[in-house]
Amino acid sequence: MKILTIIFCSLLWAFAPALAENRLQDQITDITSDKMTYTGHDNIVIFSGNVHVIRAELELWSDQLHVHIKPQNAEQDEADQQDKIEKIIARGNVRIKSMNREGKGELLTYNPDTGQATLEGNPVLMEDKNRVEGEIVLINMLENTSEVLGGPDRRVRVIFYSESEQQE
């Protein structure tokens, strides 16, 4: 049971270092898409069509990416772009990858202030051959905690391999 807990936790926290590291400033974010729309009234930048984000060791793909920007106040430093983001929502065929770790789902919501990420829509987290799936995956990058929730249509499932099976 102890090995299962270790593997389970390592899978859930697999993306935490990459996403938490991305809170650091002075990193380049490269976003490509078929279209970008900014709606100043709603403070949202929408990237749509074949969205691909590269930041440090993290890559994200989705059909759409909505970046919700906080309303600007007088005390906010113009150079501090990371603090301007209220939340990020990736929709449709969401895939996130960091080194040998990968996550998939239909909806990813991330709040930089709280460090809370939610992956929904048949979410699956994988590291090498190991995988965790459920109905909703909740990860708090700031507190290094995670939770996988099952539901009426999908229970929590963990598949893990021993080290010798990983190398095959």
Results as ranks from 00 to 15, higher is better:
D34M: 03
E86Q: 13
S62A: 12
A16V: 14
S146N: 11
N43K: 10
L12F: 02
R55M: 05
T109L: 00
V67P: 02
L125H: 06
E21R: 06
V137I: 14
L12M: 13
G40H: 08
Q82C: 03
D113C: 05
E143C: 03
E21A: 14
D80C: 15
S62G: 11
C9A: 07
E86D: 15
Q25K: 14
N100F: 07
A74H: 13
T39G: 01
E143M: 14
S146R: 04
F47C: 02
I46W: 01
D30N: 09
K104R: 04
V53W: 01
E133L: 09
L11Y: 01
G40C: 00
T118Y: 02
G105M: 03
N43S: 05
L11A: 02
Q64M: 10
A79I: 10
Y38S: 00
I136E: 09
N111Y: 07
R157K: 15
A18Y: 09
A56Y: 02
Q25G: 12
R155A: 15
G103H: 00
N22T: 12
F8T: 01
C9L: 13
I85T: 13
W13P: 00
H66F: 10
D30F: 03
F8N: 10
C9S: 08
V124N: 03
L24M: 09
M126S: 13
G49H: 04
I69A: 01
D63E: 12
S164C: 11
D34V: 03
G40W: 04
L11E: 03
L125F: 14
T5R: 13
N122H: 13
G134H: 06
W13S: 08
V137P: 01
L58W: 00
T39E: 11
Q27F: 10
R157A: 11
V158N: 13
Q64D: 10
I96N: 03
I7H: 04
G115K: 05
P112Q: 09
E133Q: 12
N22D: 09
